[in-house]
């Protein structure tokens, strides 16, 4: 934690221009090349709904969709998404502008407490429920689906229930009967 190389560190910071579409809005910004996507979204675009809990890929708070795929924004440089299209929690809503079924279900099932992990969960769940992959809505299947996001408050039970409710609401409950609690 003490002194390291001096010459390089004092050199000027390299910057680059980047264009992205976030939640349907196009942005163009000049950023330092080392800027993490999480910081870019939060501090350059003011989209503070994406949270940062670890900056090493474990907690999932920073998860956003990059071209439809759930991605850790803390393990992505802003310049790596140049030309791509992103969705953050601010862009998640139902067709009528209200809560998306995933958001609604999380509230109905008490799937959030402090709310810090919540945007990451919403995005991760959304990717799966929107994907063409076969869903496993058994208790174990849902737990595996959301494993990859940490929550310190809820003990996950409400989130598991919310995934099932949202899957039904989104018409993805082909397997919902499987392993559902009595």
């Amino acid at each position: 934690m003490t002194g390291v190389e001096t010459s390089e560190a004092v050199e000027a910071e390299q910057k680059t221009s980047l264009r992205v579409v976030v939640n349907g809005t196009a942005y163009e910004r000049v950023v330092p090349v080392r800027r993490l996507l999480s910081d870019f979204l939060r501090h350059d675009l003011g989209l503070t709904g994406t949270h940062v809990g670890c900056e090493h890929g474990v907690c999932g708070c920073c998860t956003v969709l990059v071209d439809g795929r759930a991605t850790r924004s803390c393990l992505t440089l802003a310049c790596q998404v140049d030309g791509l299209s992103l969705t953050t929690i601010e862009g998640v809503k139902s067709a009528d502008g209200g809560l998306h079924p995933v958001q609604q279900a999380l509230s109905d099932c008490h799937g959030l407490q402090c709310g810090y992990c919540t945007p990451g969960f919403v995005i991760s769940i959304l990717e799966v429920l929107n994907s063409p992959d076969e869903l496993d809505l058994s208790e174990e299947g849902v737990r595996e689906m959301i494993s990859g996001n940490l929550c310190r408050c809820t003990g996950y039970q409400g989130i598991v229930d919310a995934v099932r409710q949202a899957a039904v609401a989104m018409g993805r409950d082909g397997d919902a009967g499987k392993g559902a609690p009595a």
């Binding site: 949270h51 958001q103 999380l106 919403v122």
Partner: peptide, 18 residues
């Protein structure tokens, strides 16, 4: 149902760094 949920679910939380 919780009064605080809607804000937190839509990315409108106000944590310090926000």
């Amino acid at each position: 149902r919780r009064n605080e949920d809607e804000r937190l679910l839509t990315g409108r939380g106000r944590y310090i760094d926000d």
